[in-house]
Design a binder for these strands. Structure first.
Length: 308
DNA sequence: AAGACGAAAGTGGTTGA
DNA sequence: TCAACAACTTTCGTCTT
Protein backbone atom coordinates (compact mmCIF):
# COMPACT_ATOMS: atom_id res chain seq x y z
CA UNK A 1 0.00 0.00 0.00
CA UNK A 2 0.98 3.59 -0.20
CA UNK A 3 3.55 4.71 2.32
CA UNK A 4 2.04 6.59 5.21
CA UNK A 5 3.52 9.78 6.44
CA UNK A 6 3.09 11.22 9.87
CA UNK A 7 1.61 14.61 9.33
CA UNK A 8 0.53 17.55 11.39
CA UNK A 9 -3.12 18.36 11.71
CA UNK A 10 -2.52 21.54 9.80
CA UNK A 11 -1.16 19.82 6.73
CA UNK A 12 -4.01 20.08 4.26
CA UNK A 13 -2.56 17.50 1.92
CA UNK A 14 -2.85 14.56 4.26
CA UNK A 15 -5.86 15.29 6.41
CA UNK A 16 -8.06 12.42 5.34
CA UNK A 17 -8.86 9.30 7.37
CA UNK A 18 -5.25 8.20 7.67
CA UNK A 19 -4.10 11.35 9.42
CA UNK A 20 -6.66 11.13 12.21
CA UNK A 21 -5.26 9.17 15.11
CA UNK A 22 -7.54 10.10 17.96
CA UNK A 23 -11.09 11.15 18.61
CA UNK A 24 -11.50 14.93 18.78
CA UNK A 25 -14.29 14.40 21.27
CA UNK A 26 -12.92 12.11 23.95
CA UNK A 27 -9.29 11.79 22.80
CA UNK A 28 -9.60 8.01 22.61
CA UNK A 29 -7.20 6.37 20.18
CA UNK A 30 -9.72 3.60 19.70
CA UNK A 31 -10.91 4.53 16.20
CA UNK A 32 -12.72 2.02 14.01
CA UNK A 33 -12.80 2.11 10.23
CA UNK A 34 -16.06 1.08 8.61
CA UNK A 35 -15.36 0.72 4.93
CA UNK A 36 -18.95 -0.29 4.18
CA UNK A 37 -20.27 3.01 5.38
CA UNK A 38 -17.03 4.77 4.48
CA UNK A 39 -16.61 6.32 7.87
CA UNK A 40 -14.18 6.46 10.73
CA UNK A 41 -15.77 6.43 14.13
CA UNK A 42 -14.75 6.44 17.76
CA UNK A 43 -15.37 3.22 19.66
CA UNK A 44 -15.50 5.08 23.00
CA UNK A 45 -18.06 7.78 22.32
CA UNK A 46 -19.48 6.78 18.95
CA UNK A 47 -18.53 10.03 17.26
CA UNK A 48 -18.11 9.79 13.50
CA UNK A 49 -14.66 11.28 13.16
CA UNK A 50 -14.50 11.25 9.37
CA UNK A 51 -16.74 10.36 6.47
CA UNK A 52 -16.07 9.37 2.87
CA UNK A 53 -12.71 8.11 3.97
CA UNK A 54 -12.25 5.69 1.10
CA UNK A 55 -13.24 8.03 -1.68
CA UNK A 56 -10.20 10.16 -1.34
CA UNK A 57 -7.40 7.64 -1.56
CA UNK A 58 -5.89 6.35 -4.78
CA UNK A 59 -8.25 4.19 -6.83
CA UNK A 60 -5.51 1.67 -7.59
CA UNK A 61 -3.57 -0.72 -5.43
CA UNK A 62 0.17 -1.05 -5.56
CA UNK A 63 1.76 -4.35 -4.66
CA UNK A 64 5.35 -3.14 -4.36
CA UNK A 65 7.09 0.18 -4.04
CA UNK A 66 8.19 0.23 -7.68
CA UNK A 67 4.61 -0.17 -8.86
CA UNK A 68 3.60 2.43 -6.33
CA UNK A 69 5.97 5.06 -7.67
CA UNK A 70 4.93 4.34 -11.26
CA UNK A 71 1.25 4.59 -10.48
CA UNK A 72 1.58 7.72 -8.39
CA UNK A 73 0.87 10.24 -11.09
CA UNK A 74 -0.50 13.12 -9.12
CA UNK A 75 0.65 15.12 -6.15
CA UNK A 76 -1.58 16.24 -3.36
CA UNK A 77 -5.30 15.42 -3.20
CA UNK A 78 -7.67 18.23 -4.00
CA UNK A 79 -8.78 20.18 -0.98
CA UNK A 80 -11.15 23.10 -0.52
CA UNK A 81 -9.04 24.38 2.33
CA UNK A 82 -6.43 25.96 0.09
CA UNK A 83 -7.77 28.92 -1.85
CA UNK A 84 -6.95 27.40 -5.29
CA UNK A 85 -8.06 23.93 -4.08
CA UNK A 86 -4.43 22.85 -3.72
CA UNK A 87 -3.99 22.40 -7.42
CA UNK A 88 -1.35 25.02 -8.12
CA UNK A 89 2.32 24.22 -8.57
CA UNK A 90 4.87 25.92 -6.40
CA UNK A 91 8.05 26.97 -8.21
CA UNK A 92 10.89 26.24 -5.89
CA UNK A 93 13.20 24.46 -8.32
CA UNK A 94 16.56 25.29 -9.79
CA UNK A 95 15.86 28.41 -11.85
CA UNK A 96 18.32 30.99 -10.71
CA UNK A 97 18.49 34.71 -10.21
CA UNK A 98 16.12 37.07 -11.99
CA UNK A 99 14.37 34.31 -13.90
CA UNK A 100 13.20 32.61 -10.76
CA UNK A 101 12.17 35.84 -9.14
CA UNK A 102 10.12 36.85 -12.18
CA UNK A 103 8.42 33.50 -12.34
CA UNK A 104 7.62 33.57 -8.65
CA UNK A 105 6.18 37.03 -8.96
CA UNK A 106 3.96 35.96 -11.83
CA UNK A 107 2.82 32.98 -9.90
CA UNK A 108 1.82 35.16 -6.99
CA UNK A 109 -0.05 37.48 -9.34
CA UNK A 110 -1.94 34.60 -10.85
CA UNK A 111 -2.76 33.03 -7.51
CA UNK A 112 -3.96 36.11 -5.77
CA UNK A 113 -5.40 37.83 -8.77
CA UNK A 114 -7.77 40.18 -7.09
CA UNK A 115 -9.17 41.40 -3.83
CA UNK A 116 -11.81 38.71 -3.54
CA UNK A 117 -9.20 35.97 -3.80
CA UNK A 118 -7.22 37.73 -1.10
CA UNK A 119 -10.19 37.88 1.20
CA UNK A 120 -10.89 34.23 0.52
CA UNK A 121 -7.36 33.36 1.60
CA UNK A 122 -7.99 35.27 4.80
CA UNK A 123 -11.34 33.57 5.32
CA UNK A 124 -9.77 30.14 5.02
CA UNK A 125 -7.06 31.01 7.50
CA UNK A 126 -9.73 32.29 9.87
CA UNK A 127 -11.72 29.05 9.53
CA UNK A 128 -8.55 27.03 10.16
CA UNK A 129 -7.65 29.13 13.18
CA UNK A 130 -11.05 28.76 14.83
CA UNK A 131 -11.32 25.08 13.94
CA UNK A 132 -7.98 24.34 15.50
CA UNK A 133 -8.86 26.18 18.71
CA UNK A 134 -12.07 24.15 18.86
CA UNK A 135 -10.17 20.97 17.97
CA UNK A 136 -12.51 20.17 15.11
CA UNK A 137 -11.73 17.27 12.77
CA UNK A 138 -10.57 17.89 9.19
CA UNK A 139 -13.86 16.90 7.56
CA UNK A 140 -15.64 19.75 9.31
CA UNK A 141 -12.97 22.23 8.30
CA UNK A 142 -13.31 21.02 4.73
CA UNK A 143 -17.09 21.36 4.84
CA UNK A 144 -16.81 24.88 6.25
CA UNK A 145 -14.37 25.91 3.53
CA UNK A 146 -16.69 24.51 0.90
CA UNK A 147 -19.65 26.40 2.32
CA UNK A 148 -17.63 29.60 2.33
CA UNK A 149 -16.76 29.08 -1.32
CA UNK A 150 -20.44 28.52 -2.11
CA UNK A 151 -21.40 31.70 -0.31
CA UNK A 152 -18.75 33.57 -2.27
CA UNK A 153 -20.02 32.22 -5.59
CA UNK A 154 -23.52 33.41 -4.73
CA UNK A 155 -22.10 36.81 -3.82
CA UNK A 156 -23.39 36.57 -0.26
CA UNK A 157 -20.28 37.96 1.38
CA UNK A 158 -20.75 41.51 0.16
CA UNK A 159 -21.82 43.79 2.96
CA UNK A 160 -20.88 41.33 5.69
CA UNK A 161 -17.64 40.79 7.50
CA UNK A 162 -15.44 37.88 6.47
CA UNK A 163 -15.17 36.93 10.14
CA UNK A 164 -18.90 36.62 10.62
CA UNK A 165 -19.32 34.44 7.52
CA UNK A 166 -16.35 32.28 8.56
CA UNK A 167 -17.80 31.78 12.04
CA UNK A 168 -21.26 31.03 10.66
CA UNK A 169 -20.09 28.43 8.11
CA UNK A 170 -18.07 26.73 10.83
CA UNK A 171 -21.10 26.64 13.11
CA UNK A 172 -23.27 25.22 10.31
CA UNK A 173 -20.69 22.55 9.50
CA UNK A 174 -20.50 21.50 13.15
CA UNK A 175 -24.28 21.17 13.21
CA UNK A 176 -24.34 19.19 9.98
CA UNK A 177 -21.76 16.74 11.25
CA UNK A 178 -23.52 16.38 14.62
CA UNK A 179 -20.46 17.62 16.49
CA UNK A 180 -22.21 20.72 17.78
CA UNK A 181 -20.35 23.57 19.33
CA UNK A 182 -22.48 26.16 21.11
CA UNK A 183 -22.92 29.62 19.63
CA UNK A 184 -21.23 30.94 22.75
CA UNK A 185 -18.17 28.75 22.13
CA UNK A 186 -17.88 29.95 18.54
CA UNK A 187 -18.43 33.52 19.70
CA UNK A 188 -15.67 33.24 22.30
CA UNK A 189 -13.00 32.49 19.73
CA UNK A 190 -14.40 34.56 16.88
CA UNK A 191 -13.74 38.24 16.29
CA UNK A 192 -17.49 38.72 15.99
CA UNK A 193 -20.25 38.86 18.57
CA UNK A 194 -22.64 35.95 19.00
CA UNK A 195 -25.54 38.11 17.86
CA UNK A 196 -23.87 38.87 14.56
CA UNK A 197 -22.87 35.22 14.02
CA UNK A 198 -26.44 34.11 14.66
CA UNK A 199 -27.78 36.64 12.19
CA UNK A 200 -25.27 35.56 9.54
CA UNK A 201 -26.03 31.92 10.28
CA UNK A 202 -29.72 32.39 9.59
CA UNK A 203 -28.98 34.44 6.51
CA UNK A 204 -26.74 31.71 5.06
CA UNK A 205 -29.27 28.97 5.82
CA UNK A 206 -31.89 30.96 3.94
CA UNK A 207 -29.79 32.04 0.99
CA UNK A 208 -28.01 28.74 0.45
CA UNK A 209 -31.20 26.80 1.13
CA UNK A 210 -29.47 24.68 3.77
CA UNK A 211 -31.17 22.45 6.28
CA UNK A 212 -29.81 21.63 9.71
CA UNK A 213 -31.57 19.14 11.91
CA UNK A 214 -32.30 20.33 15.46
CA UNK A 215 -29.44 19.70 17.85
CA UNK A 216 -29.87 16.70 20.06
CA UNK A 217 -28.77 17.16 23.68
CA UNK A 218 -27.10 13.74 23.32
CA UNK A 219 -24.57 15.22 20.90
CA UNK A 220 -23.19 17.43 23.66
CA UNK A 221 -22.80 14.69 26.25
CA UNK A 222 -19.38 13.20 25.33
CA UNK A 223 -17.63 16.54 25.19
CA UNK A 224 -19.20 17.97 28.34
CA UNK A 225 -18.43 14.74 30.19
CA UNK A 226 -14.82 14.84 29.16
CA UNK A 227 -14.61 18.50 30.27
CA UNK A 228 -15.95 17.39 33.64
CA UNK A 229 -13.65 14.39 33.75
CA UNK A 230 -16.53 11.92 33.84
CA UNK A 231 -16.12 8.42 32.43
CA UNK A 232 -17.91 6.55 29.66
CA UNK A 233 -20.32 4.79 32.01
CA UNK A 234 -21.62 8.15 33.22
CA UNK A 235 -21.91 9.33 29.61
CA UNK A 236 -24.09 6.32 28.84
CA UNK A 237 -26.17 6.98 31.92
CA UNK A 238 -26.72 10.61 30.90
CA UNK A 239 -27.65 9.57 27.38
CA UNK A 240 -30.10 7.02 28.78
CA UNK A 241 -31.75 9.74 30.89
CA UNK A 242 -32.02 11.97 27.81
CA UNK A 243 -33.59 9.15 25.78
CA UNK A 244 -36.25 8.59 28.42
CA UNK A 245 -36.80 12.33 28.65
CA UNK A 246 -37.35 12.52 24.89
CA UNK A 247 -39.81 9.63 24.98
CA UNK A 248 -41.74 11.37 27.76
CA UNK A 249 -41.70 14.63 25.79
CA UNK A 250 -39.86 16.52 28.50
CA UNK A 251 -37.48 17.96 25.94
CA UNK A 252 -39.71 19.88 23.55
CA UNK A 253 -39.19 23.60 23.71
CA UNK A 254 -36.24 23.16 26.04
CA UNK A 255 -32.71 24.16 25.20
CA UNK A 256 -30.57 21.12 24.36
CA UNK A 257 -27.54 22.38 26.28
CA UNK A 258 -29.47 22.81 29.50
CA UNK A 259 -30.96 19.35 29.10
CA UNK A 260 -27.55 17.80 28.50
CA UNK A 261 -26.15 19.64 31.51
CA UNK A 262 -28.94 18.45 33.79
CA UNK A 263 -28.73 14.84 32.58
CA UNK A 264 -24.99 14.83 33.20
CA UNK A 265 -25.49 16.38 36.64
CA UNK A 266 -27.95 13.63 37.57
CA UNK A 267 -25.87 10.83 36.02
CA UNK A 268 -22.78 11.95 37.92
CA UNK A 269 -24.57 11.93 41.27
CA UNK A 270 -26.16 8.54 40.60
CA UNK A 271 -22.71 7.17 39.80
CA UNK A 272 -21.19 8.55 42.99
CA UNK A 273 -19.12 11.11 41.08
CA UNK A 274 -20.78 14.27 42.29
CA UNK A 275 -20.06 17.47 40.39
CA UNK A 276 -21.36 20.76 41.78
CA UNK A 277 -23.91 22.75 39.79
CA UNK A 278 -21.28 25.44 39.49
CA UNK A 279 -18.80 23.06 37.83
CA UNK A 280 -21.41 21.73 35.42
CA UNK A 281 -22.44 25.29 34.69
CA UNK A 282 -18.85 26.32 33.91
CA UNK A 283 -18.34 23.34 31.61
CA UNK A 284 -21.58 23.72 29.70
CA UNK A 285 -22.19 27.45 29.68
CA UNK A 286 -25.72 27.29 31.09
CA UNK A 287 -26.49 28.84 34.45
CA UNK A 288 -26.94 26.91 37.67
CA UNK A 289 -30.55 28.06 37.73
CA UNK A 290 -31.28 26.39 34.41
CA UNK A 291 -29.49 23.21 35.50
CA UNK A 292 -31.64 23.19 38.64
CA UNK A 293 -34.96 23.66 36.89
CA UNK A 294 -34.12 21.05 34.23
CA UNK A 295 -32.86 18.53 36.71
CA UNK A 296 -35.93 19.00 38.94
CA UNK A 297 -38.18 18.34 35.94
CA UNK A 298 -36.19 15.33 34.79
CA UNK A 299 -35.89 13.72 38.20
CA UNK A 300 -39.54 14.26 39.06
CA UNK A 301 -41.03 13.08 35.78
CA UNK A 302 -38.65 10.17 35.35
CA UNK A 303 -38.94 9.21 39.03
CA UNK A 304 -35.20 9.36 39.60
CA UNK A 305 -34.17 9.60 43.24
CA UNK A 306 -31.22 11.95 43.36
CA UNK A 307 -29.63 11.69 46.78
CA UNK A 308 -26.41 13.50 47.45
C1' DA B 1 -18.11 28.08 54.22
C1' DA B 2 -19.69 25.84 50.24
C1' DG B 3 -23.40 24.25 47.84
C1' DA B 4 -28.16 24.17 46.75
C1' DC B 5 -32.56 26.38 46.35
C1' DG B 6 -36.04 29.41 44.52
C1' DA B 7 -38.13 34.08 43.81
C1' DA B 8 -38.09 38.11 41.03
C1' DA B 9 -36.77 40.95 37.39
C1' DG B 10 -34.47 41.44 32.96
C1' DT B 11 -33.02 39.85 28.12
C1' DG B 12 -33.46 38.28 23.50
C1' DG B 13 -35.81 35.31 20.29
C1' DT B 14 -40.15 33.44 18.26
C1' DT B 15 -44.81 33.65 16.85
C1' DG B 16 -49.04 35.28 15.28
C1' DA B 17 -52.22 39.07 14.46
C1' DT C 1 -44.62 46.18 13.17
C1' DC C 2 -46.01 45.12 17.64
C1' DA C 3 -47.43 42.59 21.60
C1' DA C 4 -47.59 38.26 23.93
C1' DC C 5 -45.03 34.49 25.30
C1' DA C 6 -41.68 30.91 26.85
C1' DA C 7 -36.94 29.93 27.78
C1' DC C 8 -33.09 31.46 29.81
C1' DT C 9 -30.02 34.63 32.59
C1' DT C 10 -28.75 37.53 36.47
C1' DT C 11 -29.02 38.63 41.04
C1' DC C 12 -29.78 37.82 45.64
C1' DG C 13 -31.52 36.22 50.10
C1' DT C 14 -32.22 31.94 52.52
C1' DC C 15 -31.71 27.19 53.74
C1' DT C 16 -28.88 22.82 54.14
C1' DT C 17 -24.85 20.10 54.65
Amino acid sequence: MTPKKDTDEGNANADYGDAIRECPECCSKNLIRDYEKAELFCKECGLIVAENIIDLGPEWRAFDSDQNSRRTRVGAPMTYRIHDKGLSTQVTGSLTGRGQQKLKKWQQRIQIANASEKSFVFALSEIERMASVLKLPPNIREAASMLYRKAMKKDLIRGRSIESIAAAVLYISCRQYCVPRTMAEIGDISQVRVKEIRRTYRYLLRELDLKVIPVSPVDFVPRFCSLLDLNGAIQSRAIEILKRATEDELTSGRGPIGLAAAAIYIAAILSGEHRTQKKVSDATGVTEVTIRTRYKELSEHLCIEVLR
